[in-house]
Design a binder for these strands. Structure first.
Lengths: 341, 341
DNA sequence: TTGTATGCGTTATCAG
DNA sequence: CTGATAACGCATACAA
């Protein structure tokens, strides 16, 4: 690998001059800068990243903390899309992506924060982890620039998918199509879930429908079995819902494409909606009625807000950014011809 | 951040001794090693990664080259599972994961190889890219340890999902259930596709069935629309197949859960199989008949073979590892009661 | 068994 | 406008 001193030698200049020229120092005249850059290109010079980091305490890389506990991590389309968007945005601004972890080095098991510091990582995006893990909290509360996704930490900017809006929109959509008995199978109790439930209740209230507990069973995200169970329980109610909003698209598709046992009248006629907006939801016929989270935007914003904070720490104020998604009307909530009012 | 000199000061020893103790040098007696490690733990010492790299020309990080062009990159479950497995395996062996890219630094746009060298990345895993890109080829043919997934480069070890076996197994499965008219909708012409087609033809041959071109239409991977089109064309044949093997699970699920137009007799009775073994395939009822690629194993092997090569370059010989998957019997290929022989 | 000295490639300070 | 030099934190050859 060519290094600065090679360019210096080739051009009969000093290392210092080359370094300045390459880094756009105003002391160097344009003609010299051009000569240097030209020569650098010819020699295939690329700066040694670690030497630079050692000197500057700045690595131009951002860390990503994801934990893939079974279904809710990297392998979930929502998060892999976010990751990809972060990657694209960060790279276009000259930053690399590294995953944060806490593995041991000669018996020393560093915390996330130590890992980040030892690598001089400039900032981190935290998503899809146990936000109550002290290890995670230490990182978030440190002086390392941090952006969280779908969770708020004091002093950190956070990007939130607008979960309340999502279920609110879906509920209103069902109402508009004539449904009055709308159930919402929600996921395990998390911040995200509470927002969604709030959206559901708010919509019902605005529509003059009273929310019933029996229409709000709990299941688990990305666990279709639990959703099926909740669904079948709804089918056993005296007063069965005509429309069921599900935890997520995967579960909704499973519900739609499985031959379930139970009350045929209910199963064959009930309307179903998902949540997320995964690729598959657009592919099936009819298209799944769901709420498409703008995961692309969430990732991009996370990266760009983080980089701004890194580059302009003085201007930084923590922000809470809500990212709205978009209702995908689809066709799995069917118009109710004779609404049972 | 505590550094080596802090430990040295605290213990009244020299930097060199600390460094040796921490790195398991045999010259240091166990008692000293213990004292040093104890102190290191107390001070929260973690080695400065970049200083170490600068000195050793070794970063303990492995690069991953993925390109997400629409559906076939990170966002596809197959690849995100592989990525996650690579991550887990690499981290457990003390390596970090960094994405490779080729963005510019002060007007210099480095190649992948330069990016890797400037970061002293110890080795790379290449997957899901255009393997004919000269930029990619340069990297693969360099002296950087490289493992490719689902593609072979001269001199690199490669991990290949056993695509031939997959379609072979599915075809035999269909035969066993009484099917004789088995079609295979394959993806665009790639190495992977050729292997799959080979498996299909081999199975048919062994079973004494002659392969017909009209039973081998082409579609595109993860593009259900193209698969539907090919599927409907099959339904218009004089001699319609009784079983259709698809490019991938997503398309198979779409086929199964969509209300398609066309010959009802054909559509309602034809059997369908997928390929991949995505999470969803196990969730629907009946479970999708498909071939589960062992993406977990593929990722783990990629990482571990790569690390072995990095750590024991002398012992290295390029390997071609085929990873077999597993037939998921499922229930979407139905037994044919009256096989039309 | 432990310590000293050197250099990895870069940037920053300060002098020319 | 340019150059010499120190320093970043660590590992290692060599000396004690």
């Amino acid at each position: 690998m060519a290094k600065i001193s090679d360019i210096a030698k080739a051009l009969g200049l000093s290392n210092a001059t080359i370094s300045k020229a390459l880094n756009g120092s105003p002391e160097i005249p344009q003609t010299t800068v051009d000569r240097v850059k030209e020569c650098a290109r010819e020699l295939g010079y690329v700066p040694s990243h670690f030497a630079r980091t050692l000197k500057m305490h700045r690595s131009f890389s951002i860390g990503v903390l994801f934990v893939d506990k079974s279904q809710s991590g990297l392998r979930h389309e929502y998060f892999s899309t976010i990751l990809n968007a972060i990657k694209v945005e960060a790279e276009s601004r000259g930053y690399d992506i590294t995953f944060i972890n806490s593995e041991n080095y000669s018996g020393l098991r560093p915390t996330y924060l130590q890992h980040v510091k030892s690598r001089a990582i400039d900032g981190v995006v935290i998503a899809s982890v146990d936000f109550n893990d002290p290890n995670v909290m230490e990182l978030a509360q440190s002086n390392i620039p941090t952006v969280t996704i779908d969770h708020t930490f004091d002093g950190c900017t956070s990007i939130m998918s607008d979960n309340e809006d999502g279920v609110y929109e879906l509920t209103k959509r069902a109402y508009k199509l004539g449904h009055r008995k709308i159930a919402f199978i929600h996921g395990e109790d998390t911040t995200v879930t509470r927002k969604r439930v709030a959206g559901y209740v708010r919509a019902l209230t605005e529509l003059g429908i009273s929310a019933k507990d029996e229409y709000m069973p709990m299941a688990r995200y990305h666990d279709p079995e639990s959703v099926i169970k909740a669904f079948q329980a709804l089918g056993k109610l005296k007063d069965k819902p005509t429309c069921v909003l599900c935890t997520d698209d995967i579960s909704a598709v499973v519900l739609l494409s499985s031959r379930l046992s139970g009350d045929r009248e209910f199963i064959d006629n009930v309307s179903i909606a998902g949540y997320d907006g995964i690729y598959l939801s657009r592919m099936i016929q009819p298209v799944l009625t769901t709420y498409c989270q703008d995961s692309e935007m969430i990732g991009r914003l996370a990266a760009s807000k983080l980089i701004s904070q890194i580059e302009n720490p003085k201007l930084f104020v923590p922000e809470l950014v809500k990212v709205k998604g978009k209702l995908q009307e689809g066709g799995t909530i069917r118009p109710l011809v004779r609404p049972i009012e």
